[in-house]
Simulated assay, not measured.
Amino acid sequence: MEITLKDKKQAWLHALRLRTLPLALSSIFLASFIAAYHGYFRWEVLLLASLTTLLLQVLSNLANDYGDSVHGADSDNREGPIRAVQSGIIRKEEMKKAMYLVASLAFVSGVSLLLVALYDHPMFLFLFLVLGILSILAAINYTSGHNPYGYIGLGDISVFLFFGLLGVMGTYFLHAVTWNSTLVFPALALGLFSTSVLNINNIRDIYSDQIAGKKSLPVRIGRKNAIVYNWFLILGGNIALLLFVLTNDGYGGLLFLLVFPLMVKNAKGVEREKKAAQLDPYLKKTALSTFLCVLSFGIGLLIF
């Protein structure tokens, strides 16, 4: 392992995985930019949706650290960065308490968001409350619990749905309390980009996952096909954003194409590098390039 955890503070910071947070915010920001473009933007929705999403992402990170240690994916065979529970600095019981705390905070934040956005629409409020509870359960049960769905290769579908379709279309609805069919395109884009980050993570961990019996998609289809899949996710996401621009006459949004070469460079790096330590930086790079893509798209949409 290249990273060693020296004390509890460092271990907790490592478990939070702060580098994943910009990706978590991408769907909220993208939907909010489009809501502003359509004249529906609400600051209180942006702030509360961002807080709720950040808490859900932290919950997912803590649950992943806990779950992979319990189920054996974080063993001595793992080549990626060391995890907090795996290191022994944070006990499993402590991690579980942290998960309960963050889950409670996410629930309170989420309910506050729904009350602010949908107070006059009880039917929609109830529907979104159910979706919020499902989001919390999905964050916890990815690799923890008795039957973690991440261990049978369903993580990609979950990320696509929650980071893409639900994240973008749900946030837009909380701003506007109305539906726009062309939102499918940016929702698809964020779902594909977010799934790419998960795919890179699973390509990095393919060896240790095989040993632990974690049947991630790269384990199921092999590294070569996982690389092809990654190209599909990156290119497909950019095409989906392009389709939104063309169907909404929001040509300023084409500013996102400035980030496209960076995404291609990252995808080439993932294809080229074989060792886990060399692949690991591309998780952060892909997440940040997604966030930059959203910012450039949104700023271009509103200014030009």
Rank of each mutant, 00 (worst) to 15 (best):
M263G: 14
L48D: 02
N64E: 09
K215R: 14
L217W: 01
S194I: 04
L192A: 13
K9Y: 08
P122G: 07
F185V: 04
K268V: 15
V197I: 15
N61F: 05
H71Q: 13
K92S: 15
L161M: 11
V70F: 07
S104I: 08
M263V: 03
E273L: 10
A35S: 14
R91Y: 04
N180A: 10
D156Q: 05
L59V: 06
Q86W: 04
G88Y: 04
R42G: 06
V159P: 01
S75W: 00
A35H: 08
I239L: 15
I3N: 10
T290I: 06
L288A: 12
D120V: 01
F124L: 12
V108H: 00
W179M: 13
T195F: 03
L125V: 02
N266M: 05
L54T: 10
A240G: 03
F260N: 09
A138L: 04
A187Q: 05
A226W: 00
K8Y: 06
F33S: 13
P186A: 09
A276K: 02
V85T: 14
L46M: 12
H146P: 05
A11M: 03
A31F: 05
K268Q: 14
V45S: 12
I89A: 07
Y66T: 08
L16H: 00
G145T: 07
K96S: 12
I234H: 07
T178Y: 00
